[in-house]
Amino acid sequence: MEFLDLPNRTLKNRLYGITSIADFGTPIGELRNILNDFHQFIDIAKIGIGCAYVTPNIEEKIKLYKEYNIKPYFGGTLFEKCYYQQRLDEYVSKLKILGIEWIEVSNGTLDISLKERLTLINKLKKEFYVLGEVGSKDAEKDLPISEWKDEINLLLDAGCKYVITEGRDSGTAGIYDRNGKVKDKLIEEMTKNVDINRVIFEAPTPKNQMFFINSFGANVNLGNVKLQDALVLEAQRRGLRSETFYLEDIQCKSPL
C-alpha cells in the first residue's frame, strides 16, 4: 500500500532514523513473533537495566535479535554495577563470549567523572562500538545546558558511535522533568552545533516521541522505545498520526 506522499524514511542498515527498543524481559516466544512482523522498524535492542545478568536464555535472545539484523546491547546500569565492583574485565570478557558488539558507557546511577568515561571509551572502542550517555537518572540532578552540549561532543570525539540522552524508561529524569515534560529549552540549546544524527533521544512514550519527530523530522534517533510500540512509532514517523499529520517530507530537520 504505497500511494500516499509521506516523509522519506531511512532504511536498514541505517545510520540515523534509528529506533532503539528497550527489552525488559520479553519472553522468547513473544519476541520471535514481534520481530517476525516488525523487525524492519527496529535497529538496536537494549536489554534494559541489569536484566541481561539474570536472563536464563540470554544466548538465545541475543541470537534471535541478530537473526533479524538488530544490534543487541546491555543497559548501562549493568555496566555501572560492574564498574562499581571493579569487574569490568569480566564484563568485557562475557560480552565477547556472547557475541555482543556494542557497549554502553553511562553514569546514570554512579557519578563517574567525564575524564574517567573518556578514558574507558578510548579503551573500549578498540573492541566494541561504544554508546555514550549523558545525564542522570536522579531527577534532582540538573546538569547545566552547556555541560550537556560539551559532554555530547566530547563523547562523540572520543569515539562513541552515538550518544544517548538520559530519559529513563519512565521519562521523568534527564531531558524530562519529574512530571514527564520535555525540557524543551534544554533540547533547543543542547542540540545547537551538535550532530543530532549521532544523538539518540530516550523517548519512552508516544508523547515524547512525537515531540522529537515534530522537532527534528521523521528520521530522528529515538531510544528506550517499548518493544510493542515499534509499529506505532513507525506510523508516527510517517505522519500517520494526528499529532504528526502535517510532518514535512524531510530527512532530518535542523535543530529547533
Results as ranks from 00 to 15, higher is better:
residue 140 E to K: 13
residue 205 T to Y: 11
residue 147 E to M: 11
residue 162 Y to E: 01
residue 175 I to C: 08
residue 220 V to F: 10
residue 207 K to L: 06
residue 188 E to A: 09
residue 189 E to I: 01
residue 170 S to R: 10
residue 147 E to G: 00
residue 181 K to S: 11
residue 140 E to R: 12
residue 198 R to M: 04
residue 165 T to F: 10
residue 220 V to N: 04
residue 207 K to Y: 09
residue 195 D to A: 10
residue 202 E to D: 14
residue 228 Q to R: 13
residue 134 V to R: 07
residue 107 N to V: 02
residue 176 Y to C: 00
residue 182 V to Y: 05
residue 140 E to H: 12
residue 198 R to A: 05
residue 177 D to Q: 09
residue 120 L to N: 02
residue 212 F to E: 07
residue 230 A to S: 15
residue 156 L to E: 05
residue 177 D to K: 10
residue 141 K to H: 08
residue 185 K to S: 13
residue 174 G to P: 06
residue 216 F to T: 05
residue 152 I to V: 15
residue 231 L to T: 07
residue 203 A to I: 11
residue 198 R to I: 04
residue 189 E to S: 09
residue 171 G to V: 03
residue 201 F to C: 01
residue 108 G to H: 01
residue 171 G to L: 04
residue 111 D to L: 05
residue 158 A to D: 05
residue 189 E to A: 11
residue 234 E to T: 08
residue 214 N to V: 03
residue 228 Q to G: 01
residue 185 K to A: 09
residue 230 A to K: 10
residue 231 L to S: 04
residue 138 D to A: 12
residue 110 L to E: 12
residue 209 Q to I: 00
residue 157 D to F: 08
residue 222 L to Q: 08
residue 196 I to E: 15
residue 220 V to E: 13
residue 157 D to H: 04
residue 116 E to M: 12
residue 132 G to M: 06
residue 225 V to D: 12
residue 234 E to Q: 14
residue 181 K to M: 06
residue 144 P to T: 11
residue 202 E to P: 04
residue 213 I to E: 00
residue 139 A to V: 04
residue 235 A to L: 11
residue 121 I to G: 01
residue 168 R to Q: 03
residue 114 L to Q: 13
residue 163 V to K: 13
residue 169 D to N: 12
residue 181 K to D: 13
residue 230 A to P: 07
residue 168 R to W: 06
residue 180 G to A: 06
residue 218 A to T: 06
residue 219 N to V: 02
residue 176 Y to F: 13
residue 159 G to L: 02
residue 167 G to Q: 03
residue 148 W to S: 02
residue 153 N to T: 05
residue 206 P to E: 12
residue 182 V to K: 10
residue 204 P to W: 05
residue 163 V to I: 13
residue 153 N to P: 14
residue 179 N to V: 02
residue 221 N to M: 02
residue 164 I to W: 09
residue 174 G to M: 06
residue 132 G to S: 00
residue 234 E to W: 04
residue 144 P to E: 14
residue 201 F to N: 09
residue 107 N to R: 07
residue 109 T to W: 12
residue 153 N to Y: 10
residue 209 Q to S: 01
residue 228 Q to W: 09
residue 194 V to I: 05
residue 144 P to V: 12
residue 156 L to Q: 12
residue 210 M to H: 08
residue 173 A to S: 14
residue 219 N to M: 04
residue 121 I to K: 02
residue 127 E to D: 09
residue 186 L to R: 07
residue 161 K to P: 09
residue 161 K to T: 10
residue 208 N to D: 15
residue 129 Y to M: 07
residue 220 V to T: 03
residue 198 R to S: 02
residue 212 F to S: 01
residue 220 V to K: 10
residue 122 N to F: 04
residue 171 G to S: 07
residue 215 S to A: 14
residue 149 K to N: 11
residue 161 K to E: 12
residue 150 D to S: 14
residue 229 D to E: 15
residue 193 N to G: 12
residue 138 D to L: 09
residue 231 L to E: 14
residue 232 V to Y: 10
residue 122 N to Y: 01
residue 113 S to N: 02
residue 111 D to I: 04
residue 188 E to Y: 10
residue 138 D to K: 11
residue 183 K to L: 12
residue 190 M to T: 14
residue 213 I to S: 00
residue 181 K to G: 00
residue 224 N to Q: 07
residue 176 Y to I: 10
residue 210 M to F: 05
residue 118 L to C: 01
residue 122 N to M: 02
residue 228 Q to H: 15
residue 173 A to Y: 02
residue 129 Y to S: 09
residue 194 V to Y: 11
residue 171 G to H: 02
residue 183 K to H: 03
residue 111 D to A: 10
residue 224 N to D: 13
